Simulated assay, not measured.
Amino acid sequence: MNLKATPTALPEVLILEPKVFGDERGFFFESFNARSFALATGYSCTFVQDNHSRSVKNVLRGLHYQLGSPQGKLIRVVSGDVFDVAVDLRRQSPRFGQWTSIQLSGESHRQLWIPPGFAHGFLVLSDEAEVLYKVSEYWNQADERTIAWNDPQLGIAWPLQGAVIQSDKDRRGVSLAEAELFP
């Protein structure tokens, strides 16, 4: 198999490592293969949208989730470094409110699978970073929600190196206690 899956502290959130073929010319790997993804994750889905963001150092995006049409996200960084976070928002989960993180980079080629029911966010650690991610449901503005990145109840240990740069939407994120959540 060309894809290795490793569970994180939240076992449904998986670190995916593709087999990379490299030589003096550079490298090659399959960034996505539906059969390999389903075998590695146990999750078979149709990704309906690809998103691409470019951000500068200290940009913090998130913590985002969609309530009515929750998205699974397959995230990878093509250049730069990010600190990527997933938070379990499923009230019935034994890990409700817990978070896990991984550093993703263009050099490592690792990816992160975050299934529906989790919030997602990332902090850019390098001078700039480009993030590509596939989603399993279409984005719907009416369904979008944001939890505050610095909610003390979550206690996420962001590796901050200066003032955070955020969108207005992300600055308006609510606490976990105030958030609309999954059953």
Rank of each mutant, 00 (worst) to 15 (best):
K4S: 09
A5P: 00
T8R: 00
E12L: 13
V13R: 02
E17T: 14
P18K: 01
F21K: 00
F21Y: 15
F21E: 04
F27G: 03
F37K: 02
A38M: 06
A38E: 15
L39F: 03
G42D: 12
C45P: 00
T46A: 14
V48Y: 07
Q49R: 03
S53T: 13
R61A: 12
Q71I: 13
Q71Y: 12
G72S: 08
L74Q: 01
I75D: 03
V78W: 09
V82S: 02
F83R: 02
D84H: 05
D84G: 05
S93H: 04
R95A: 14
F96Y: 12
G97W: 09
W99A: 10
L104W: 07
L104A: 06
G106V: 12
S108W: 02
S108I: 05
H109Q: 10
H109F: 13
W113M: 06
W113R: 01
I114H: 01
P115H: 03
A119T: 01
A119M: 05
F122P: 03
L123D: 06
L125E: 10
L125M: 14
D127A: 12
E128H: 06
E128L: 03
Y133F: 08
K134P: 01
V135Q: 04
W139F: 15
N140I: 15
E144V: 08
A148P: 00
N150F: 15
I156N: 12
W158G: 07
G162A: 04
G162C: 03
G162D: 11
V164W: 11
I165C: 04
I165S: 08
Q166D: 08
K169M: 07
R171S: 08
R171E: 13
R172Y: 11
S175F: 11
L176R: 01
A179F: 07
L181Q: 07
L181Y: 09
F182C: 07
